[in-house]
Design a protein around this nucleic acid. Structure first.
Lengths: 223, 223
DNA sequence: ATTTAGTAAAAAATCGATTATTTACTTGGC
DNA sequence: GCCAAGTAAATAATCGATTTTTTACTAAAT
């Protein structure tokens, strides 16, 4: 008997939401830019209603600024905000990782190994970075997944998107990426050793290293 | 010369958003309920487009669940989620309050005194609770306002809305409210004394007390 | 020179109607 | 009686057009 698996239903609205989210995080729009809805409509070949619904969701999510009667703008970037985001990542991801180490089971360890391996392989074989970004996001999601708090995971995801707006301003830096990949590997090792102390310390390092990268991106970009 | 202050522009979409947010937090809709968009349209006397835009925003904010091709539902309630929300409030509001005590200036102290006084007076004179809820929210917002992190404030606000969905399931309890009001008063006192340790301890107590209330509300409601 | 008022163009928001999808119901087969 | 397929009704999503508001531009007035 065949399983009647529904093709994961999507709507024009949800599709354009995903695309715009990716493009906003990836820096395809300039910070502060005013979005020309009609232009987007053409560019993405989508109707006005689903487009507006997606923009509304993105505004509630924090990837757009909505001003009554004057449409949608891409949020500006500032060093203060980057610092804020990095600080929050340190606090929330640290908290989540510690809990994940307490509660994560064998399946989690397997997921971690798999995610780390996929990430390590991706950046060698692939030219385009989209795939690396996806796997990188997935790795960090896995790291904190079993923390036990739905809301904590939600906030962390949101902060990642915000953080990546800064980090992805700049070009890829192979040297730094190698260092980060090394940290990814060690994070998995410490997590599996259930060494909460050391793991959290390393995660702090990792976030701070990423922060340095993002800050460089931001500074050279705003000059 | 007269200042040309624009009447704070609003749109049908933003108005219905505010109303629905209030009604969702206030428990006017049953948990798990499927929203009948056409009914809402009539009930709130609003067009379909602004209504849908508001619902999309509320879903992104977490006060609604959106499922592709099957509209919007009110999120269900569960003890696990209440625990999660309360835990997160403890962590995030504690963090924010400590920072607020470090960075808050004289203007903050004034705001605190004012917010506390307004709240204390409100529950005596007013019959309807809407005003008390508004002032209570405002008090807690003031408490953490100068914490220095826009994102932290944003998350805390979101958690408050979620928490209140549970707390406002039940009837008003004058006895408990008196205890909470007492804590509000002491929170202000400790904040102004800049006693971060004690202040945070009391805020923890305060949240735990509120949690007990909310839990009772939830338990008796789900029975 | 700067403001003020007026107007045309552009853009945002909303409406009314249409299309697509799901849900509820019915009927026929086993 | 119970499941499956088919159909009708209900609902969600989307489209195309209209209305409202803002913005950009011009010209007159202080």
């Amino acid at each position: 008997m065949t399983q009647h698996i529904q093709p994961p239903t999507s709507t024009a609205s949800s599709r354009i939401y995903d695309i715009l989210r990716k493009d906003l995080v990836g820096g395809r729009f300039a910070a502060g830019e005013k979005l020309a809805i009609n232009a987007l409509k053409e560019q993405y070949q989508v109707g006005l209603s689903p487009l507006r619904e997606a923009l509304n969701k993105l505004a509630a999510y924090g990837l757009l600024i909505q001003e009554n009667q004057r449409g949608f703008r891409v949020p500006t970037l500032s060093r203060n905000e980057l610092d804020d985001i990095a600080q929050m990542r340190l606090a929330l991801e640290g908290m989540a990782f510690e809990q994940a180490i307490v509660h994560g089971d064998a399946a989690w360890e397997a997921d971690l190994l798999a995610a780390e391996h996929r990430l390590k392989c991706a950046d060698m074989t692939l030219d385009k970075d989209d795939e690396w970004e996806r796997l990188h996001t997935q790795f960090h999601r896995t790291l904190v997944a079993p923390c036990g708090s739905v809301w904590l995971l939600r906030f962390i995801e949101q902060l990642h998107d915000q953080f990546d707006r800064y980090r992805r301003l700049g070009p890829r830096m192979p040297t730094v990426r190698q260092e980060l990949d090394q940290q990814h590997h060690e994070l998995v090792a410490l997590a599996m050793k259930r060494d909460g102390q050391a793991a959290r310390a390393l995660l702090d390092d990792h976030i701070r290293t990423s922060y340095d990268v993002a800050l460089q991106c931001f500074l050279s970009h705003s000059r």
